[in-house]
Computed example of a mutant assay.
Amino acid sequence: MEYDSLINEIKHSYQINIENINLHREMIGRVYFLQNQEKKYMFKIFRSFKTDDALQTVRILDYLKANSYPAVSVIRTVQNDSHIILSSQAGSCVGILYDYVEGATPDGKIEAKSIGTQIGKLHNLMEQYPEKLIRRTKFDYIDGYISNMQDLQFDPGKILELNHYGNELWERITKLPKSFCHGDLHTGNMLRNECGEYILLDFDDASGDYPSMDVAYMCDATDFNHSNESMYDQTMRLYERFYSGYSTTRTISSNEFKALFDFIAIRHFQIISRIVQCQGLQSISKEFCDEQYSWLMKWQELCIKHG
């Protein structure tokens, strides 16, 4: 939307005068920073295919606030609605206005233990969540990327190898305990406030799937684009620091621990599929897919090597 149109929509729905608006980032949705003389806000427009996720986000944030867990506040409209509906070329989109959160992006390595403690509390609290959570499918996690490579007419032999690897990963993780999962847990999606609490952002991928996936994503010390021999060990060391905090409130089973390294592979399938979903097939190339194929095969080797 044009800035003027968006400002008018917000003014009409929230009775808030906006003096400055800036696009902060764009991926699953567009995130804007807004400001007037009194305060700052954050406004997010979700893509049309993420409407259910957007509405689930509001319910989760309301639940966390009601239970005194540090979370960003959703601002209601003058009609006391949690969101507004906006029109776009792709269809109707949900827009949500949040209070602006002051804070700093934490250092995931230095603060791993304290982050782990708070995430353990989050997982425990969300086990009492009264609403039904969205469940993601194999296509969401793995097969979307396989489909992208087929559309790109990528090497059929390599597609077959990755499909086989994806099937093995899926077979193992589906045996794990299910509960709440943030789904995109990393330091870029949290802010440390002045009280030392971690305010979590972007619950777009939250689900009722695997809490251990959050642990894996938070402890992923690999480079997404470049593989090296040390990345398994680096991830293991980060996990040890994170788990020293997480385990003060919650533990994971031996099978969940083993699956942490599977989830790191799954993250590659998942993120690339998400990029294509949001930005189109032209956003990735055969060369990029070949790099990812090599990365995943190397990761598989490392996981076998370390048992």
Rank of each mutant, 00 (worst) to 15 (best):
Q118L: 11
V101P: 02
S88W: 04
A90D: 13
S88T: 07
K113W: 00
G108I: 09
C93Q: 15
I115T: 12
G95P: 03
K109I: 14
G108N: 07
H123A: 08
E102R: 12
E102C: 09
C93S: 12
E102M: 08
G103N: 13
A90C: 05
G95D: 00
E102I: 11
Y98P: 00
G95L: 06
S88I: 01
C93G: 00
L122E: 03
T117H: 12
I119N: 03
G91L: 12
K113H: 08
K113E: 15
N124H: 04
G116M: 09
S87Y: 00
V94I: 15
T117K: 14
I85W: 01
S88F: 07
S87M: 03
S87T: 11
L97Q: 02
A104L: 14
L122K: 05
Y98E: 06
A104H: 13
I115V: 13
S92K: 13
L125E: 01
K121S: 13
S114D: 14
Q118I: 12
V101C: 10
S88D: 06
K121H: 13
G91W: 03
G108E: 13
G103S: 09
Y100T: 02
Y100I: 06
N124I: 14
S114G: 00
G116H: 06
E102D: 14
T105M: 14
L125N: 10
I119E: 01
D107E: 08
K113L: 05
T117E: 15
P106M: 08
A104E: 15
G116I: 05
Q89K: 12
S87H: 10
K109T: 11
I96H: 00
S114A: 12
G108R: 11
V94N: 02
T105N: 09
V101G: 03
L97Y: 03
K113A: 15
I85N: 01
G116S: 10
T105D: 04
T105H: 13
Y98T: 04
I115D: 01
E111F: 06
Y100M: 05
K109R: 12
A112V: 05
L125I: 05
N124A: 07
P106V: 03
L86D: 02
V101Y: 02
G95E: 00
K113R: 14
H123S: 04
Y98G: 08
S88M: 07
D99L: 07
G103M: 11
K113M: 11
G116N: 05
I115C: 10
T105V: 15
I110R: 15
T117W: 08
G108Q: 14
H123F: 07
P106R: 11
L122N: 01
L86H: 01
Q118K: 04
L97D: 02
D99Y: 00
G116T: 10
E102F: 14
Y98V: 07
A112L: 04
E111A: 08
G120N: 06
E102S: 15
K109G: 02
I96A: 02
V101S: 00
T105K: 15
G108H: 10
G108L: 11
L122T: 05
G91H: 05
H123N: 14
C93R: 09
Q118D: 13
G91M: 05
V101H: 01
Q89L: 09
S87V: 02
K121T: 10
Q89Y: 08
I115Q: 10
D107G: 12
L125Y: 11
A112S: 08
G120T: 05
